[in-house]
Design a binder for these strands. Structure first.
Lengths: 154, 154
DNA sequence: GGCAATTATTTCAAGCTTAAAGTTTCATAA
DNA sequence: TTATGAAACTTTAAGCTTGAAATAATTGCC
């Protein structure tokens, strides 16, 4: 997924764009993963889950997390298991519907996430440093529009 | 890595851009992975390795593949193992330097890849369909420049 | 030549990821 | 009520991924 078009010709521009997109996100992602590990001894998936929960003090269902994070539900199970065993989130069975459980950040999880998120934001600022704020807005706009085709698709 | 900024404020534009970038590439990647599985019973990492090799008939060293694909060398070992067992690539010990081995597509691998790559390219064209060719070029240009900071970094 | 450092690769343990199959709970309609 | 089906979640098997440790071969220095 990271190699260039195998030949020249029409319709290669979108392929080239896709490859650049992928290389860019992989490079940044790798750097962030490494820093999360070194500085906070955590991982990107754990960070993702905590970031999702941070926005919603009342908590999220497992399936909400799965949908929001664009990962399978089996995947969420494992990550939340580990976060629970680290005392960063809780999984509370609900009275109303006993199939579901509400996942919430613990107090420790909230505090921990706030610190990590601050570092994370400054890292992203650094890693995207040569994109001007203005260009960032324009690029983000384009990416939003080209994603809208796919949002909520199945 | 997929949640939005946790608060408003200055310097959030780059963070928003990063999140959009990541959501876009994850969505497209998931779709391509699924189609590769369904249509060709293969995976994205295998496709990546084959794409890299396809450009270079004389073959690549394991470490070349690792650098080119931006993944660890232990990772490449496993993927190449599986491709070898499927008869799609060969790993040839070299006389000059017996630590290294040259990885090449087999004839079957070459034929197989050509078919998959054609489908892959048309999928990407479809998935990025609402980005005009012109916009694709501009976006790709921006992505190239903002990556150059990181290219070759360690 | 011989030995230390370097380079190329593999192995390993831990964790992430998916799709598919399994379990429990809920909703509903006969 | 009680089957039937749907929904929420977990489990499983297979594969991907990393960083670190282990192996093997080469290079460079004395």
């Amino acid at each position: 997924m990271v190699a260039g078009p195998t030949s020249a010709g029409p319709g290669k521009d979108r392929l080239r764009l896709w490859i650049r997109l992928l290389r860019a996100s992989r490079t940044i992602e790798a750097e962030l993963r490494e820093r999360l590990k070194k500085e906070f001894d955590t991982t990107l998936p754990r960070f993702d889950v905590m970031a999702a929960l941070y926005r919603v003090p009342e908590g999220m269902l497992m399936s909400d997390l799965s949908r929001f994070l664009l990962v399978s539900n089996g995947n969420v199970t494992g990550i939340v298991d580990r976060l629970v065993s680290e005392g960063l989130v809780t999984r509370a069975r609900r009275n109303g519907d006993r199939r579901t459980s509400m996942v919430r950040l613990t107090e420790e999880g909230t505090k921990s996430f706030a610190a990590i998120a601050a570092a994370h934001e400054s890292w992203v600022g650094e890693l995207l440093g040569n994109v001007s704020e203005d260009e960032a807005r324009r690029l983000a706009g384009m990416l939003k529009s080209f994603r809208s085709n796919w949002e909520g698709r199945e």
